[in-house]
Design a protein around this nucleic acid. Structure first.
Lengths: 126, 126
DNA sequence: TCATTAGTTCGGAATAAATGAACTATTGAA
DNA sequence: TTCAATAGTTCATTTATTCCGAACTAATGA
């Protein structure tokens, strides 16, 4: 199997980071990984934000985080260990990750139930 | 014409903000609006990041910024004036917007030419 | 070797974004 | 008032992304 791609920190873009963390599942996963000092495997997140997530979808979410430069994934035996790359990103974009994680926590506290983005209110005419 | 929708600051989500600013055109527009103290109309941005943007697309970008709670748009005569809602968001998510704008500026300085995702195989000159 | 576990990749359906064309609102001039 | 110009929005169609079940790969242990 080809090795997983990890961008150099110099190739990491703000856009990619924001896009990766603009998904409620991914920001929850990343926030968890970044907040723990030990590495986390994927299967720990088969249930995030109170709903089951298919493992193929989970895998894509991890890929998005990885290719945005937010995490580093390394196979360790039969499972994958994921650690955050906060320290590197902090050097390139000081305060960015911390501010996002902090804002995410504030939101969790203010709205314990609804963490989703505002959906379209209008019904499609077709 | 139905009035433009602006979410209450309490309904603003981190996800929506990050999603809105994960697009290179939108973050450029927002950064410009947030950095200037006078309001800006849409047409000022028909050329952003060295490429022409169709006005229908621009309109959608402004809508995205507006519905994420990042800007407030008000018609003034024949044109639309846009101001940032940084102050409100700062109260809800302290430091978030500032960190993103700062990171965006850092990226502009480090890569004055390529602001897009790293698709092409270009030698990284570090 | 085979079974199990953990994750990736593939392919098609569902969803979202980009944009030319048509439309709406406001202003100013005739 | 009527017409033209300007500034944006909305619609409809094309294009790109995302989701997720099924099939696949890699490591481990019996």
């Amino acid at each position: 199997m080809r090795p997983l791609f990890h961008p150099s920190v110099d190739d990491v873009t703000v856009e990619a980071i924001l896009h990766a963390l603009s998904d409620p599942v991914r920001v929850a996963i990343f926030s968890d990984i970044a907040g723990s000092n030990c590495s986390q495997n994927c299967s720990n997140f088969l249930n995030v934000s109170d709903k089951a997530i298919p493992k193929s979808t989970l895998s894509q979410h991890f890929k998005a985080l990885r290719e945005a430069g937010l995490i580093r994934s390394e196979r360790q035996g039969v499972e994958m260990q994921n650690v955050s790359r906060c320290a590197e990103i902090q050097e390139r974009f000081p305060g960015l990750i911390a501010a996002i994680v902090r804002a995410h926590n504030i939101q969790l506290q203010s709205k314990p139930r609804a963490a989703k983005a505002p959906k379209r209110k209008r019904k499609a005419s077709k």
